[in-house]
Write a protein that binds this DNA or RNA. Structure first.
Lengths: 152, 152
DNA sequence: GATTTTTGCGTGTATATGCACGTATCACGC
DNA sequence: GCGTGATACGTGCATATACACGCAAAAATC
């Protein structure tokens, strides 16, 4: 077997640990999805657009818990690739985001691979830890929320 | 009290959960460190440069578990800000990364604030979850490692 | 009906991240 | 001394992410 690099122990800084975990798991999912041509971020956006029908950018941002402006640019890529459509809506302020046939085909390809990694991940991590992860997400987002806006 | 946004339940996708956690906690730390003018990523780089003396980019990358090329650009910013110095080494291939007085002053400012968030974080998350997090990091980095390189 | 507020979008600017490549130099074996 | 492989860097290209702004139009208020 190949040597394999020695992995530094987790940091004392909670934030860095989460960031390290994020980088590592993103790499795993992205590699798994690679043949489908989708990144895990794009896959998740597409899946949610498909699931929650045509919807506005803001609504999708809330679902994905992403900065709206971040999503705007992410969606631009999906639009350029022909996976989604960004059409006007009755209310001219809003935009209707909807998945295209091409987009559905893409997630079809990706889904199989996603299920595989997801299964592996669950096996390696364990149910208990997964639950704790869910809790961790909730706690952190709760904390980050309050701080966000207080002003006017 | 302000309404506060409703927080969507954690995703089924393990990867997305970790990414969400990463975004949330990064926001918390960055806000806490804001007055110091450092991002949490920069703070960690500076702290490690300070701790492990002058060292090469590659060495630091291993410590931080970062892509070397990513680190190169991150360091460029710290250098422009005058926090570090990137000087040549006996071996002309290598570079010596070292912290400057200005850099030490910066982490001095940041450290107090970091300790505060870190404490809050530990309180909110709990020892058990923190251990779980450490384990999660190890497992994920272990998995991501193997896949990496098999080549020639 | 006019004014103010709120809502929804997109852009400019900046950071973080990773992969594919190319370059220079050291360390080895011959 | 000369290839050869390994090592250390940096860059081009692409994505993800967030904050500060500005713009337009619906909604609410008077």
């Amino acid at each position: 077997m190949p040597a394999g690099k020695p992995i530094p122990k987790p940091s004392v800084c909670v934030c860095l640990n989460v960031r390290r975990a994020s980088r590592a798991i993103t790499k795993l999912y992205d590699q798994a999805l690679k043949p489908s041509g989708l990144k895990v971020t794009q896959f998740s956006a597409l899946m949610n657009i498909d699931a929650h029908g045509p919807l506005t950018t803001s609504a999708l941002a809330k679902i994905l818990m992403l900065e709206r402006t971040t999503l705007v640019r992410n969606l631009k890529l999906l639009e350029n690739a022909g996976f989604i459509e960004n059409s006007p809506s009755p209310d001219p302020r809003e935009r209707q985001i909807s998945i295209t046939a091409h987009g559905r085909h893409a997630i079809g390809q990706a889904q199989t691979r996603w299920r595989t990694v997801q299964r592996q991940m669950k096996q390696q991590i364990g149910t208990e830890q997964l639950q704790m992860l869910g809790h961790l997400v909730t706690v952190l987002e709760g904390m980050a929320d309050g701080q966000g806006t207080s002003p006017p």
